[in-house]
Design a protein around this nucleic acid. Sequence first.
DNA 1: ACCTGAACACCGTTCAAGT
DNA 2: ACCTGAACACCGTTCAAGT
Lengths: 191, 191
Amino acid sequence: MAVSARRGRALSTEEIYLTALRLVDEGGVDGLSMRKLAAELDVNPMSLYHHVDSKTALISQLCAMAANRLELPPDDGTPWQDQLRALGHAERRLAKLHPALWSYISSHPESLHKESGVWQVLTRNLLAAGVPATELDATCEALFAFVSGFVTAENNQTIGFRAGTEDVDRTFEIAVDIILAGLSHRHSPAT
Amino acid sequence: MAVSARRGRALSTEEIYLTALRLVDEGGVDGLSMRKLAAELDVNPMSLYHHVDSKTALISQLCAMAANRLELPPDDGTPWQDQLRALGHAERRLAKLHPALWSYISSHPESLHKESGVWQVLTRNLLAAGVPATELDATCEALFAFVSGFVTAENNQTIGFRAGTEDVDRTFEIAVDIILAGLSHRHSPAT
DNA sequence: ACCTGAACACCGTTCAAGT
DNA sequence: ACCTGAACACCGTTCAAGT
């Protein structure tokens, strides 16, 4: 059989992804190497290429996995302000769960953004906020970028470097407040 | 003399920085390698280490150079809204001038942020906007992170992927409008 | 079908030796 | 003082060969 050098089990794509995700969480995207990953799985480096096209493809897959863990607010009729705030918190939570991966996502367009539910939650609630159709896409993009910028900065300690996490929590609420106030003020909300 | 393999001139730190910056602008931070840089300068790779501590140190220096090119709005009494908008445009301009470097700056805290004039411009104008002292630092950090997030997203084409640059210009104005409206609405401006 | 070893073309950096 | 060649410990990936 072709399972030789390994302990017993054959190599599974699932196993590769999970181990890779752990390595990225521990040592950053740069810290992941195919050779280290193979060593961790007790396998020849080249065996990985039977389950994965390239390192880039592997990381893209990790991003998709992480994006699926976003806990999006349901469409249950709660005020748009609350839903948008909840979305912000969800993004921030995810970013803290997988900081290195989040940083990668933020600077690689092909990852999260495209088909994800984030877009739907934003659209739905911005409509409720009275954002005109002509500005809808632009506002979605701006808001997503804002929150991305915030949590990225927080992860890199470019934000909140003068105090502990409580202070950053407060800063995040203020940041969300500013955005929500801005949205309310520019348009007449449909509530 | 110790200038041998090179054309005529000796190697200067200035020359190294400028060539490195060009390489980064052309091929990204990952695209810069000490060996390529040396080849470009027609010099042995190891000669570089006489002028520069490490690749990391070199890149930090490049970030500082780029940050100095920020065209900050002067303190001339124009309304805080206009100054903040101008600051946003300045950041966006810089990000477009050196996209790869900007992306690096955004995810490496030790680069721009610390002593830069950005901070002063923000503080001055947020005070004028009536932001209370207790929220000043938080608001500065949030605003800087917002704009960073936006221009990073734009550089990575995570934003404005459905249209040309004109549309992104408009999206940026909308984004700034939301923030300025939010600032105006949460506090009574001192104008 | 799945795994592997050797090899290729790269890295950043150290160190001892040259002028 | 400044430069260099050889060497070390890494990379991602291809390719032909094994079972």
